[in-house]
Simulated scan of single mutants.
Amino acid sequence: MSEAIRIQVTCQYLAESSHPAQQKYAFAYHVRIENTGHEAVQLMNRYWLITDADGKKTEVRGAGVVGKQPVIPPDECYEYSSGALLDTPVGSMQGYYEMKKADGSTFQAPIPVFSLVVPHLIN
């Protein structure tokens, strides 16, 4: 069933919220979750693995996203924006959403790895 959930992430560096002298780099990311299946699903929980350029790994687990546990009907999308703060100008995020079907069963919808990079840092 996880193949019936398509997840796309775009991100941007937030220079105005970053403090490179203190090694704090802020990023915003926008997630689009598309249900390409034939039944509604509810996003129950999230898991993120955030890795910075020094190899520091941070795990984030919690209920829903941005305070919501949305139901996504077939052929519809749910979108939200959030952010991450890194100690390095380069990092990555990946994870999964735990989704619940109408029958109460759950499955993991993987979130593909994506990069967080300060612009013009890498050519």
Score class of each variant (00 low, 15 high):
46 R>W: 02
47 Y>W: 08
48 W>R: 12
48 W>V: 15
49 L>I: 05
49 L>K: 14
50 I>M: 10
51 T>D: 02
51 T>G: 06
52 D>K: 02
52 D>H: 00
52 D>S: 06
52 D>R: 09
52 D>Y: 04
52 D>G: 05
52 D>W: 03
53 A>P: 11
54 D>G: 08
54 D>V: 07
55 G>C: 06
55 G>I: 14
55 G>Q: 06
55 G>M: 09
55 G>K: 03
56 K>C: 09
56 K>S: 13
57 K>W: 00
57 K>F: 00
58 T>R: 11
58 T>L: 06
59 E>Q: 12
59 E>L: 02
59 E>V: 04
59 E>K: 12
59 E>H: 07
60 V>M: 11
60 V>W: 00
60 V>Y: 00
61 R>L: 05
61 R>A: 03
62 G>Y: 08
64 G>Q: 11
64 G>F: 10
64 G>K: 03
65 V>S: 01
65 V>I: 10
65 V>K: 00
65 V>F: 03
67 G>Q: 09
67 G>R: 14
68 K>C: 00
68 K>T: 08
69 Q>S: 13
70 P>I: 09
70 P>W: 15
70 P>G: 03
72 I>H: 13
72 I>E: 12
72 I>K: 14
72 I>N: 03
73 P>H: 13
73 P>I: 12
74 P>M: 07
74 P>D: 12
74 P>R: 13
74 P>H: 11
75 D>K: 08
76 E>L: 00
76 E>C: 01
77 C>W: 15
77 C>N: 12
77 C>I: 03
78 Y>K: 00
78 Y>M: 01
78 Y>H: 08
78 Y>S: 01
78 Y>L: 03
79 E>S: 10
81 S>C: 03
81 S>H: 13
82 S>N: 05
83 G>A: 10
83 G>D: 06
83 G>C: 08
83 G>P: 07
84 A>K: 07
84 A>I: 15
85 L>G: 01
85 L>I: 13
85 L>S: 01
85 L>V: 10
85 L>Y: 02
86 L>M: 15
86 L>P: 04
86 L>G: 14
